[in-house]
Nucleic acid binder design. Structure first.
Lengths: 162, 162
DNA sequence: GTCAAATCATTACAAGCTAGAACGATTCTC
DNA sequence: GAGAATCGTTCTAGCTTGTAATGATTTGAC
């Protein structure tokens, strides 16, 4: 778990601003999610890669690196780890033998289903303070912020290793 | 700026869950805030320390480390940087000369006012998609989540260096 | 009243992670 | 067919961070 000094006591006055609360809760949510998938022996980056492969099977590592915003050299080690565990596999493209197209194995698909379960549990735990209507309201507000801020749906910068 | 692989394509179905949106937007907000205070030659940890000192002047470094959740050895370098720039000062406690009580200088207080301005601008930019009523709704929902999740008001784990 | 244990700040050290450049293999372009 | 470009990989250097040892000072026990 990551521990570091950070912004403290936001703009004094009417309590913390929305941006501070978003950063605080966002970091908390990411940390808790990392704990949960840690029970599946996965790190957040590994989970992100699994999901990206599932969303678009057959992509090259270069393309994935571009989408995920990570240097290609980092993907190599990540793919190695998942490959060794039999979750993804590299297939050489016969048409262009430079490329390694990535696919999920059946074990990878099975694990991804469990990740989805964990994600729902996580979501429910984070929003425990809110009823269904309030959760819908929150989701709508957040979606509008994410859209206006130009955030790529489904991608966000990573936090830390586990 | 930090770039790393992360969770992608959250629980398929009715779009991303709230927890994912929170993590995504939170990381984005933290990154943008880091950029803004970077214009003042400050990193997020430095800003956090300045605010913590302002909130409770005269604290020992040990006490601050405990509040901020950082190892004391890290605080030393942090305080050094701020001390060299004349923003905080260490005063030996005459009653217990082991302790270094920390205080803001007038320059530190002046800078803190500018940080507060930056914080307000930042908050406004992040919530640009929402009108005043919606911002109040969002703030209220977030505050309830933060409270229910047991988050210490004004403190959150740090992201990264600038 | 003195000596051992505890506390605080600091320094030294080691380990981990990351980004970027350099490197073979392969393919595209002219 | 030759040179430039692309892809995956490896290597390396830099940085950040946490833990452990150090020195000064205080507290508590006897």
């Amino acid at each position: 778990m990551n521990t570091a000094v950070e912004a403290v006591v936001p703009p004094p006055g009417p309590g913390p601003g929305s941006a501070f609360l978003l950063a605080q809760i966002g970091a908390h949510a990411a940390g808790r999610f990392a704990e949960r998938i840690g029970a599946l022996d996965l790190t957040p980056p590994q989970t992100g890669l699994l999901r990206a492969v599932a969303a678009a099977p057959g992509q090259s590592q270069q393309a994935l690196a571009s989408v995920l915003g990570t240097p290609p050299s980092r993907l190599v080690a990540l793919v190695d780890q998942l490959d060794e565990r039999g979750l993804v596999e590299r297939r050489r493209n016969p048409a262009d033998r430079r490329l390694h197209a990535l696919y999920l194995t059946s074990a990878g698909e099975e694990l991804l289903r469990r990740i989805a379960d964990v994600g729902r549990e996580h979501d429910d735990a984070i929003c425990a303070a809110l009823d269904d209507g309030e959760r819908a309201t929150l989701r709508a507000l957040l979606a509008r912020i994410a859209d206006e801020q130009g955030l790529t749906p489904g991608v966000h910068p990573g936090y830390r290793h586990v």
